[in-house]
């Protein structure tokens, strides 16, 4: 169990440098013709031929859909112009509509709260569990495997199960609360609780991912450091804050970034549990975008795409922050 994990962690940085190498490969050809002057053209062709499948794939499945989404958000689409394809270009009008919408403020708030709270608890619980399982007691592997269950279940299953458990009248959570003398809580149907409920469900789903990545990060910290710290008289708490936590920083950064991107776009759980309601109290950008584009008999494609693009931009911004931080770390 241990060894594959070790390899796994070691391959992570490798995988990254390989993808960075992909960028370098495009830049590589120029010096190549200089060296191999005899057959520059054929080498160039071969290089392009090898590049073609990936480029084609990227263009067809990433660049074009993204372009279409931007295009959708910049035109005034009605159902008629969607079909006939003559929607007038309206610039940033759709974005204005979205910003002026009374849903915008609350949705932004909910998205920020949902993302930060989920991210904090997922990371904290995931890290605590990872440190706990790192001690390798008996059955730790089995228990760790059990903790992965939320990750393996299809989202529709876990979200439906949560909404049954949190049902106001027949849910198990309220019946447990009842036995300890607490009155029923309208988890999904009260505007004060709906956001909390979807956050709880999402934390439960996100913990295993954090656990796995952080656990494999822990494996790469040399045991000798802990021994040295113990010899210096550091207690468990001190060892965690002075050895584990700082050495885990690169892994933590990527975990948090990936977690952020996953959490920003969480849609299924919220939609299945509350449909963003009641009264918009658990609407995030992701559910709002869907609501605009598909949740109505008369789809509003333009504003829906605009909200979706705002999400893409937010995720991209955090991605750039991550890259910057990483470069700084590599330089220092």
């Amino acid at each position: 169990m241990r060894d594959p994990q070790m390899n796994h962690t070691k391959q992570r940085p490798d995988g990254r440098s390989a993808s960075a190498g992909g960028g370098a490969a495009t830049a590589a050809p120029p010096p190549a013709p200089a060296r191999a002057r005899r057959r520059p053209a054929s080498r160039q062709w071969a290089a392009w031929a090898f590049l073609a499948p990936v480029t084609l794939y990227l263009v067809v499945f990433y660049a074009y859909p993204l372009y279409r989404n931007v295009d959708l958000s910049l035109r005034h689409y009605t159902v008629r112009s969607f079909v006939q394809g003559n929607a007038p270009f309206t610039g940033l009008k759709n974005y204005e509509t979205v910003f002026d919408d009374p849903t915008f403020g609350p949705a932004l708030m909910h998205t920020v709260v949902f993302t930060t709270v989920c991210l904090f608890f997922q990371y904290a619980i995931g890290l605590a569990l990872a440190v706990f399982f790192h001690q390798n007691f008996r059955l730790s592997a089995t228990l760790r495997a059990l903790f992965l269950v939320p990750w393996l279940l299809p989202l529709i299953v876990s979200a439906s199960t949560w909404s049954w458990m949190l049902n106001s009248d027949s849910g198990i959570v309220n019946s447990v609360l009842h036995t300890v003398g607490i009155g029923p809580v309208n988890w999904l149907t009260s505007p004060d609780w709906s956001l909390t409920s979807v956050i709880i469900a999402n934390i439960w789903i996100g913990v295993p991912f954090n656990l796995v990545v952080l656990y494999s990060g822990l494996q790469s910290i040399p045991g000798s450091l802990y021994e040295a710290a113990a010899l210096d008289g550091a207690g468990a708490w001190r060892r965690f804050w002075s050895v584990t936590f700082p050495l885990l920083r690169p892994v933590s950064a990527i975990t948090l970034l990936l977690g952020l991107v996953y959490t920003l776009k969480v849609f299924d759980i919220i939609w299945i549990m509350t449909k963003g309601g009641p009264a918009g109290s658990s609407t995030t950008f992701a559910t709002w975008s869907y609501q605009l584009g598909f949740g109505n008999l008369l789809p509003a494609f333009g504003p829906g795409a605009a909200v979706g693009n705002l999400l893409v931009v937010a995720a991209l911004a955090f991605g750039l922050v991550y890259l910057r931080v990483q470069r700084k770390q590599a330089l220092s």
Binding site: P191, A279, S281, L298
Partner: peptide, 17 residues
């Protein structure tokens, strides 16, 4: 459009907002 606003109103009223 009317229907969307109607179900929103129903949800607001029933949930006490």
């Amino acid at each position: 459009k009317i229907s969307e606003q109607m179900w929103k109103a129903v949800q607001s009223a029933l949930s006490g907002v």
